Simulated scan of single mutants.
Amino acid sequence: MRNRLGFQDGARVEVDDPQDRVLRHPINSINGWIAVAADRTIAVKLSEGHSEISAGNLRASFYPRADLDPKAAVGFTVYLDLCGVQFAGRAVSIEFVSGEVQIAELVLQVTDEAVELAASYHTGMAAKKAKLASLLKEGVKTDSRCFAPSALPDSWMVSPVLEEKRDAVSSHFYGPKIYDFLNEFPQGSIFLDAGAGLRKRPLPNVINVEIYDYPSTDVLAIGQSLPFKDNSFDGILSLAVLEHVDDPFLCAKELKRVLKPGGRVLVMIPFLQAEHGYPSHYFNATRSGVVKLFEGLTLKEQILEKSNHPILTLQQIVGVYFAGLGEDCRYEFLAMPVSDLFDLAEKHLKGEQDQMLNLDPEKAFHIAWGTTSIFQKD
C-alpha cells in the first residue's frame, strides 16, 4: 500500500537520480537515500512482476552522506543491469531488506526502448565475450567478488567491488564525435574504451576496461598495464581518463601497443579544468602535451568539441571560486557583473548564439576546457 507521499509503507526512500523513477537504459545507476540508520545492514532484491531476477543483475552500495544524519538515513547507489531480463510488464521492483524483513520497496518504470536495447545487447554478449577471449594475454584471472575477469595487479589499492564503492560514479554518454569516429571504421571492427566508467548503453563492438566491476565492465585492468595482445584494436577511445592516471606516458605507450597498424585513437583530455575525479587528478595537457604523449603516431586533427568550449572553463573557474568563498560574501560576488558568464555558458550549452561566444580559434585553444585529438598508427 502506498502512503500519501507516494512511497511504499515502510522506510521512506528518496531517489535523486532518476528523479522520475523511469529507467531509460539497459544499464542504470539509481542514486538516493533510505530513512534507516547508516550502521544498519541492508540488502537488496530485484523482481519483475512476480519473478525474482538474478542477483547478478543487481548490485548496491550503501554509504553515509554529508547531507544526511547518519542516525536517520543512509545513501545508496543501486547498479541495475536489465540485459537478459524477461519482461512481462514495464516495471521492476527493488526491495530493501534488513535480515529477512523487507523495510522498503522502490518501483521503477522501464521504457520500451530500454527493454529493446537490453534484449539486443544480451543477444550480442556471447560474440563479444568470444572476441574478448581472443584478445587477452595470459594471466587474466577471475575474482569471486566480481563478474568481469580481472587483470588488476595484486597490489592494487582500490577495491573493484561495487558494494564497497563510496565515491561518485563516472557515467557519460558518447557524443556525436564519438559515434562519427566509430562509424568511420569498416563493419566488424573492434574497439577499446580504456577507462570507460559506467556505460549505460554499451556497444557490442567496444571492450570496456575499468578499475570497477560496473555491469558494463568487460575487463578489470589499469591503463598502465593493459591485458591485451599487441595490435589488438582497430580503434581506441580514451575519454577524460589520462588526467586520472599517475603515469600518462606509460598509459599512452600501452594504448599505442594494443592499437593495430593503421588504427586510430581518439583522446579527450582536459587542459584548463579544476581538480576532479577518482582515484585522483594528476595531469592536464595542452595540445602539445597530448601530441608528446602519443609521440610516434601521426596527428590527424585536433578540434574543440562543444563540451570543451572556453566559456565552460570560465564558468567552472568562477564557480569553484564562488563555492570557496564564505557564505557572508559569496552571493555578493555572484551578484557582480561576472554572473553574466554563467548566463553565457547556459546559452552555449543550449546552442543559442551570442557574439561573445565567437572566439578566435587560436585563442579558444589557449583557454579551452579540454581538447580532442585523433591519431593514426602508421
Rank of each mutant, 00 (worst) to 15 (best):
68 L>M: 10
95 E>S: 06
105 E>T: 12
145 R>G: 04
111 T>M: 05
105 E>Y: 04
96 F>A: 00
118 A>W: 01
33 W>T: 01
46 L>E: 05
142 T>W: 03
141 K>Q: 14
149 P>F: 13
33 W>R: 13
133 A>D: 06
53 I>Y: 00
34 I>A: 02
125 M>L: 15
69 D>V: 08
97 V>Q: 01
67 D>M: 10
51 S>Q: 14
89 G>P: 04
57 N>L: 10
46 L>M: 12
38 A>T: 07
135 L>K: 03
33 W>I: 03
42 I>A: 03
129 K>F: 08
59 R>K: 13
47 S>Q: 14
98 S>N: 02
137 K>W: 11
107 V>P: 00
121 Y>T: 00
72 A>F: 09
71 K>F: 10
104 A>T: 00
86 Q>M: 09
51 S>Y: 03
73 A>R: 02
138 E>I: 08
140 V>N: 03
41 T>H: 12
51 S>R: 13
146 C>Y: 06
111 T>F: 10
112 D>A: 04
83 C>F: 09
40 R>N: 08
36 V>Q: 06
37 A>L: 08
86 Q>S: 14
27 I>P: 01
39 D>Y: 08
35 A>Q: 07
41 T>P: 00
149 P>L: 14
117 L>P: 01
31 N>A: 12
133 A>E: 13
132 L>K: 04
117 L>V: 02
138 E>A: 15
85 V>D: 05
42 I>Q: 02
58 L>K: 12
124 G>N: 05
100 E>W: 06
26 P>M: 15
144 S>Y: 07
75 G>K: 02
64 P>F: 05
59 R>G: 10
103 I>T: 01
84 G>S: 07
129 K>Y: 11
33 W>D: 09
135 L>N: 01
62 F>Y: 15
58 L>T: 05
23 L>Q: 11
92 V>Y: 02
69 D>R: 04
79 Y>G: 02
28 N>S: 09
45 K>M: 15
76 F>I: 02
109 Q>E: 13
80 L>A: 01
61 S>F: 04
122 H>P: 06
56 G>W: 13
143 D>S: 06
39 D>V: 04
125 M>Q: 15
152 L>N: 10
152 L>F: 11
139 G>Q: 04
75 G>Y: 03
114 A>F: 02
101 V>Q: 11
141 K>F: 06
41 T>Y: 14
139 G>L: 09
143 D>A: 04
123 T>W: 15
120 S>M: 08
138 E>G: 13
112 D>R: 02
129 K>A: 11
130 A>M: 07
101 V>A: 12
128 K>W: 09
82 L>H: 08
66 A>Q: 14
84 G>D: 09
124 G>P: 10
77 T>F: 02
26 P>N: 13
